[in-house]
Design a protein around this nucleic acid. Sequence first.
RNA 1: GUCCCCAUCGUCUAGUGGCCUAGGACAUCGCCCUUUCACGGCGAAAGCACGGGUUCGACUCCCGUUGGGGACGCCA
Length: 558
Amino acid sequence: MAAWNWSSKKDAYRLFIKRQRRNLPFLKRRPRSSRNLLRNRHLRRPNRRNPTRPKRKRMMTINISRRRPPREESMSDNVVTRIAPSPSGFLHVGTARTAIFNYLFARHNDGKLLFRMEDTDPERSKEEWKEAIINAMKWLKLDWDGEIIYQSQRIDIYKEYALKLQELGNAYYCYCTPDELEAKRKKALEAKEFVGYDRKCLHLSEERRQELDAKGVPKALRIKTPHEGLASFSDIVGGDLTRDYLEMDDWVIMRSDGRCTYNFCCVVDDHLMGITHVIRGNDHIINTFRQCTVYDRFGWDRPNFAHIPLILGKDRSKISKRHGAVSVMDYDTQGILPEAMFNFLSLLGWAPGDDREIMTRQELIDAFTLERVTGANPIFDPVKLEWMNAEYIRNMDDNEILDRVRWVMIDAGLTTRLSVEAHWHWMLQVVRLLKERVKTLRDFPTQARYFFTDEYEYDEKGERKHFSDSAVIALLIALRDEFSGLSDGFGEDEIEKALRSLAERLEMKPAKLIHPTRLALTGLTGGPGLFELMHVLGKEKCIARLDRAIEYLEEKFS
RNA sequence: GUCCCCAUCGUCUAGUGGCCUAGGACAUCGCCCUUUCACGGCGAAAGCACGGGUUCGACUCCCGUUGGGGACGCCA
């Protein structure tokens, strides 16, 4: 088959170069440059912008390395993706983003999104984390298909498959002690050599093995990894990825206590669950090389892989639950809307290709393809998230906002559950005045404080600006009288008319009256339009607060 | 250290060899609107990491340098 020849020649060449480097000390001194000999990008990654490589050849590469039909065909298959968090902490933004990509891809292709809890480590898995992760998934409305699969309930299945692999002759027992291995690892690391298992127990004689078994020495099961050639797989984001088998070792698939390890369980489950597309962070690329060995040793078809770039923090290192948790639910408490979070996260490492940024879930689903996923790791920018959040709040229905923000208001001690229900309509007016001015739901209680309580101080700067002259007292008195004389109601128009006509009579700019009034009524220098907020506050409160300010100022200037 | 991945404004990104004098968004700054704050409108500043090569022509393809990230467990 021509395709096979073409690809294997290239593989052989790359392998040759790699070996050359290994054997030639003068090349070894320049690892970077010699390594880059291998960077025949056109061999690895179909370039979107300038595909010099004929398409026919590209498809052949995919054929040989993936042993699957080319992507164009597999797309029409029933897509099954999965999200597989490990409950060793809250759902953090990186995992959430991976979940979103899996979700979008599945929904775009009318496929399924499965949920698997990777809770095989009893030391680190906690029930409360599982619950927290599920809640966070629900918060983002990442609805998955079917029941959640818990790996902790499937340990017998993994063991069964591990033993099967051993029977097949593709795995062998290792009697080395963890201490022994740790010492070797340390030594290799110090000698700056390849760190990996030396296959000591692969060559154990049958007698020796029986001897050790008789003694009851604990044994782990290791998979037989090919000793030479190139490991390779085709990645939808990264193109053809290769690695020398010399750089890989016979890793443990089953621990001495009979529990299987992550990379093994993962493959068994992905196979059994019928996963067609494995979409995960690119920190898993090395795992994928390992996992491919399992697929191959079992003779199973490999799924399609897509390794998406990692989200980085401000310091450019991976946002990780191990170094300071960045939980999605932290953003909930910060007053970020799940819709905004979803939108924002989906735009990290992916873009629709046009200028759209604010997109509904359906628009995201319609536009999402893995081919458009970027290769570079994006940095999480909370400032832009806030902007997007503000955008969502501004465009959201008032009732919807109030429904979500009422708990924040109650938490802040500004109101009570009963009061919200009793004054729903009035609260809506407050929301309407503030929704243009907040970035998060948390901003509501701080900006709406004066609507709920008389306990506020006058802003320091504002006081210097508008309360610095005793002449302001007379103005406030005049205004108070003007307002209390209003008999046709206390609507915005009446208030505005009253204030402006007073200003006219006093031959001064309305602003001269407006600013001190705002300070008197709210304690602030900014906020909604004065006439609007006075209307919402009500005549009685306005008069009382003007009186309070007059009193305060009289004392101040006496 | 070894291996793997990546590289366009400060940040997220568009870019499929000529439509690029590089487009959009956030942030920043200015102006306008305006009773303030915000919103909105208009505008400015800001980027193809560097060096070679291929080509009539390179942000785009190739090689290298540099820089960044990740992985190197009987964790997941």
